[in-house]
Design a protein around this nucleic acid. Structure first.
Lengths: 135, 135
DNA sequence: TCAATACATCTGCTTACGCATATATAATTG
DNA sequence: CAATTATATATGCGTAAGCAGATGTATTGA
């Protein structure tokens, strides 16, 4: 990973908004609110294909909104704070708005259910402690 | 296909972000902060073609972010408040972030200069009181 | 080896742009 | 006053670029 020097004063807001301008990516971000989430859980909760989820996560990562951490076979994603204050505020308001959305709340319910009973979902059987989640 | 009985407060955040995910549109929005602006001023200040500016304004209008008012031959655009509280907060933070951007500040300087001396810009000679601006 | 994830590639769709033209209003002219 | 012209803005159209979806394959680690 190239030690990306921190973006100085200029932050491409249009790029940030491009990253946010997709319902799937908003759902991913919503699930990451306050916790780190494993890709396999995204796939399970959203019911989307793994490549699709992976590409959207890569998109968010390129936009500097999320970061990834490897743990063996699994990749865990989490939200990171943008270096730019304005972008940080926008992201914070966005996450707050998502929390008010019914569909997003439904996603969270499915996520919590999966966390509580991973043994019911074959794809999650081997995953490490479901996630570093607080569910 | 959830036939959800009522989602009155639902607002398509992805659509809002799509509208914001373009540098030209962000520049247009920035110029409209606190005032109504005539299309001819956008063209002059941004140095972009009139059809291009017009299209981006139409995009913002379809997204419910701006509204237009006709005054004779001229069209004035202004920012409107989204009906959704979350969207409103996001838009507010976005405008605040734009105000901190150097390029955006340069645009505003050019705009104020044009407002003070429209006689120097042929395209603005006949325009109605430059704009309902406070420059 | 297997399994989770990343990546390459193809197709279809959406969008932005430039160019030309259409529309709407105002001003001018006969 | 009707008709023409001029001006400001909007829109159709063709092209190019980029993203989404699907599928197959490569890489990585237990």
């Amino acid at each position: 990973m190239p030690s990306r020097a921190r973006i100085p004063k200029h932050f491409d807001l249009a790029l940030l908004f491009s990253a946010l301008a997709d319902r799937t990516r908003l759902r991913l971000l919503n699930l990451m609110q306050g916790r780190e989430v494993c890709v396999c859980y995204f796939v399970e909760v959203l019911g989307q294909s793994q490549p699709k989820v992976s590409r959207h996560l890569a998109y968010l990562r390129r936009a500097g909104i999320v970061a990834a951490r490897r743990e063996g076979k699994w990749m865990h994603y989490r939200i990171v704070t943008p270096p730019n204050e304005g972008a940080d505020n926008i992201l914070r308001e966005t996450l707050a708005a998502l929390a008010d959305d019914r569909l997003m709340q439904a996603d969270l319910n499915r996520f919590r259910r999966a966390c509580r009973a991973p043994q019911k979902l074959p794809a999650l059987l081997a995953a490490p402690s479901p996630c570093a989640c607080t569910c």
